[in-house]
């Protein structure tokens, strides 16, 4: 699904991530853990070429998405449409709830009202938000509570019908109950898409991820089956120290 080779990310002369090789398999939840500043977010940003919007960021190495080198892809907008992104802080765009979810289909050129209605309902349902907002779809999306906005963001990502879903610390601004609901949603989504999830909460990675990578100070320290990382033999003592909360 995703194959990263020799990936190095720099901000000016500062190295954010160095020489990373890893593979993400189809329909798995791939967790990325590591302390702040270890390059997790930078890594996610390169996967849909959002790095190009930041002129200070430079990227080396190859990333294959479904076997295609993403830097050779000529229509970056279509690439990004195949990849849904959920940012750490909820972003309810300042338009109605309905328009938030209908934005991506509209960008793709879906115009029929009935088709849009159906997409909006399905995505909100799957993001576990439909019941709370179905009577006020014309309310401003940016006025929802933090947890609701984050589920709205997920619904919006789902409306892209992505093959790959990138989540960047989605629970940072969300209460524990909502976090659990979103985690349930993600477990269901795994059947249809591949999920790469950056998280600060090692236990969240343990709950959700099939395999997990541990980033530290710009290095990929270790990648393996999640349960192995937590209970089995680890190759690197730093991994054990981190997952057991001895630093970070």
């Amino acid at each position: 699904m995703l194959s990263v080779r020799g990936l190095t990310i720099r901000y000016g002369s500062d190295v954010a991530l160095e020489n990373v090789d890893l593979d993400v398999r189809r329909n798995e939840v791939f967790g990325i853990i590591g302390p702040a500043g270890s390059g997790k977010t930078s890594f996610l940003r390169t996967l849909n070429r959002m790095d190009e919007e930041n002129s200070a960021m430079s990227v080396e190495g190859t990333i294959l998405f479904n076997g295609r080198d993403i830097h050779q892809i000529r229509n970056v907008y279509n690439l990004r449409q195949r990849i849904g992104v959920v940012f750490p802080l909820p972003v309810g765009l300042p338009m109605t709830i309905y328009d938030n979810v209908a934005l991506s289909p509209r960008l793709r050129g879906v115009k029929k009202k009935s088709k849009l209605d159906e997409i909006v309902e399905r995505c909100l349902q799957r993001a576990a938000l439909w019941d709370e907002v179905k009577d006020r779809l014309t309310a401003l999306g940016s006025l929802l509570s933090g947890g609701q906005q984050q589920r709205l963001t997920i619904a919006r990502a789902l409306s892209q019908e992505p093959e790959l879903l990138l989540l960047d610390e989605f629970s940072i601004a969300v209460d524990p109950v909502t976090t659990m609901r979103i985690e349930d949603v993600l477990r269901d989504l795994k059947d249809e898409m591949t999920i790469v999830m950056v998280t600060n909460l090692v236990q969240q990675a343990r709950r959700l991820a099939d395999r997990t990578a541990f980033f530290l100070n710009g290095d990929l320290v270790e990648v393996g089956e999640t349960e192995e990382l937590f209970t089995g033999e680890v190759k690197d003592q730093r991994t054990r120290d981190y997952v057991e909360g001895r630093f970070g």
């Binding site: 849909n48 959002m50 919007e53 907008y77 279509n78 690439l79 990004r80 449409q81 195949r82 990849i83 849904g84 992104v85 940012f87 802080l89 972003v91 765009l93 300042p94 338009m95 934005l103 991506s104 509209r106 960008l107 963001t153 919006r156 990502a157 892209q160």
Partner: peptide, 20 residues
């Protein structure tokens, strides 16, 4: 964050400006 959210959805620069 609005621009980033729209860009990440595959909106072109003009779509970001016009729609968001």
């Amino acid at each position: 964050s609005y621009r980033e959210a729209a860009e990440a959805m595959g909106a072109t620069r003009w779509q970001v400006v016009w729609q968001v």
